[in-house]
Computed example of a mutant assay.
Amino acid sequence: MSPKRGDDVPSPPVGDEWRLRFATTDAAKGWAELCNEAAGNTRRCHEALRSDPISMRDPDRQHRLRGRLATATLGGVEYPQWEYEVTAGGRVRYLVDRTKRTAYLTYASPRHPKDTDG
């Protein structure tokens, strides 16, 4: 997704920080919704993913998905899929490319994803 006039300016990763990229337009739109509805929590999510998207320090908030959601494919490559709980319902899902030190956001929304509903 190419930036256009009026878009926020993304900050580049510095030092050991990871690069964050949107994998889909829907994820970019959902991220904007999260920023509007829960700016503080979304900022904490951004900082956590930038510093360590595979952290196990707070598994209730940030964890690798399991079962059929444990991996997902982007550009023909399969990656481990993780999730960050931004709010009680809001989630960010992302794929982790360790080689490129990049987290690809595949889902972001103030609403819980439907695919985990029982």
Score class of each variant (00 low, 15 high):
59 P>F: 05
48 A>D: 08
97 D>Y: 05
1 M>S: 11
104 Y>P: 01
16 D>R: 08
110 P>A: 12
32 A>V: 10
28 A>Y: 02
115 D>G: 03
53 P>V: 05
63 H>R: 12
93 R>I: 02
45 C>E: 05
55 S>M: 01
24 T>D: 12
79 Y>N: 08
85 E>F: 07
96 V>G: 03
57 R>D: 15
23 A>V: 12
15 G>A: 07
9 V>D: 15
108 A>F: 02
100 K>S: 08
17 E>R: 11
43 R>M: 13
69 L>N: 03
80 P>S: 14
43 R>L: 15
39 A>Q: 12
80 P>N: 12
74 L>A: 08
48 A>F: 09
81 Q>N: 03
22 F>G: 05
11 S>D: 12
93 R>F: 01
20 L>F: 07
60 D>V: 04
3 P>R: 12
82 W>F: 02
22 F>E: 02
28 A>H: 02
12 P>G: 00
75 G>M: 07
42 T>S: 15
15 G>I: 06
105 L>H: 06
29 K>H: 07
99 T>L: 14
19 R>I: 03
54 I>H: 04
22 F>L: 01
102 T>D: 02
25 T>H: 10
105 L>D: 10
78 E>M: 05
101 R>A: 11
58 D>A: 14
26 D>E: 09
11 S>C: 11
73 T>E: 13
47 E>S: 09
91 R>V: 01
106 T>R: 13
87 T>F: 05
42 T>C: 08
81 Q>H: 07
18 W>D: 07
94 Y>K: 00
100 K>D: 06
65 L>G: 00
43 R>S: 11
65 L>K: 09
19 R>E: 04
64 R>Y: 08
98 R>C: 09
25 T>Q: 14
44 R>F: 10
1 M>E: 14
1 M>Y: 13
62 Q>W: 02
62 Q>F: 00
80 P>M: 07
51 S>C: 01
114 K>P: 13
